[in-house]
Amino acid sequence: MKLLNCPMNGVRPLSEFLFGGEFREMPNPDASTDLEWASYVHYRDNAPGIKKEWWYHSPSGTWFIAERNTLTDEVLATYLHGNSPVSKVKEPS
């Protein structure tokens, strides 16, 4: 079973976590076009690579971001939202 490092609780087995989907920075709803907004809510490229993901540690109720290589299933960093170290994720251009 995989291990995940919860930023609040340390390394715990995967069975204590829930996956919360890919993390994407919300564009400004007032400034974005309909197309930009639709792309934010609908579009996922699904290409393997390093992704930011939401994960939830159920017993403690902690949401955090994991940067994970979806090709190798390697987790490179975990942190609370807003506490990002230097990100390894290439932002889509």
Partner: peptide, 12 residues
């Protein structure tokens, strides 16, 4: 409840 926790973390 989980969504409440997530958005609270985002909105701070």
């Amino acid at each position: 409840y989980r969504e409440m926790q997530r958005w609270l973390q985002i909105w701070k």
